[in-house]
Design a protein around this nucleic acid. Sequence first.
DNA 1: GCCGAACCGTAACGTACGGTACGCTGCCGA
DNA 2: TCGGCAGCGTACCGTACGTTACGGTTCGGC
Lengths: 217, 217
Amino acid sequence: MLHAVTEIDTSEALTERQKDVLDAALRLLVEEGDQLTMTAVARRASCSKETLYKWFGDRDGLLTATVQWQASKVRVVPVDRKGLDLASLTASLERFASDWLTVISSDTSIALNRVAVGHASSGKDDLGAIVLENGRFALARRLKPVLEAGRQAGFLEFSDAETAFRTFFGLVARDVQIRLLLGDRLELTDAAIGGDAVRATQQFLALYGAKTGPQGP
Amino acid sequence: MLHAVTEIDTSEALTERQKDVLDAALRLLVEEGDQLTMTAVARRASCSKETLYKWFGDRDGLLTATVQWQASKVRVVPVDRKGLDLASLTASLERFASDWLTVISSDTSIALNRVAVGHASSGKDDLGAIVLENGRFALARRLKPVLEAGRQAGFLEFSDAETAFRTFFGLVARDVQIRLLLGDRLELTDAAIGGDAVRATQQFLALYGAKTGPQGP
DNA sequence: GCCGAACCGTAACGTACGGTACGCTGCCGA
DNA sequence: TCGGCAGCGTACCGTACGTTACGGTTCGGC
């Protein structure tokens, strides 16, 4: 279980200068992948290596701080759940789907996930846990209330929200993330993402939509 | 496009001794991840480094040969498509699903995918292409004829086999592969895999099963 | 028995890079 | 004005590892 960790401390007491340094590291990570060197980060950020080591301890510390810094930037607004009808539920799901596809196909996400995957093979899986926590598990935490509300209102039928969520996840992501991580060119235009979001949502509703509707027996 | 590459030459002219060496490299890869050293491979395989370099050129060549060697070992038998009824179609799909879940949750697959992902960030994406080609695309090539046969026989309805395949892929894999790659402990028992296979197949049939049946109008 | 090829084991080389030390500059409070 | 200090730039150290070189051993062919 590595679910309930590393969620709280996001941008704990970071100087503006430190944020700039982490941004530089992040850009370098996107450009060059995991083989970024401390020297390169120092040069890009116009700071000395000694400062890097003073602030972040070691290379892993810098990587961890960078991943957390990025994670702290993507905190999203919770979905408004006011008047819930089938249309707004559908719109919410489509929104989640297209947001998620946009995220996982972004250069930043790909680079971060690659680094984290490589890191996970080397014993200590800090980065993997952080990425997972702020990616897939954060998505589940945000989506499940919507699913529950949909069930409460009689639009959805499922016994286990986790299972329902994972089905939705699979319908949305399919093979996109693994293909991108493995280097497959797979340009996702906004139009394609929108279409996929609609399709995934329709399929999800076909599987989990209540047959009876909200005024059922 | 990196689909149509690196499929033909699988175990092209490999000495038994060379296969042994690659097996040793593969075991080491599973145990230690990407930071396996040429020295470690040589020691494990009881061969000299000079031989490694003579046979495989350089470190990347060894890695590539190892990945291809593993890929050449998992060539599977094509599904028999004799008397096709709904039961056998369902059984085939369930079989594909559980096979795939078994593969992607295996230590070997995880190690190989991690190496390939790390490699994809470093410019030349040989390993990523090979893994993709022998994993996700090989699965598609094997499954699509089944889907087409199911459509021909009137059990399935879809306009695009690729889209249908990707939906099936998503329903089966969901978040399993990315979680495993990122280091999430996620023990998949045979029972769990079997249950997931059944569920994914039922969901797929719910989405793509013909309403009319094979004797429809 | 002899030769050469293939191969093992290991030592050696070169380099890249993580980590550290040190001198210098500019700022800030006393 | 001046001492301290945070931080920049850079030189330096140690090590790990890819790669090469070399001596010794086995083995098949003549």
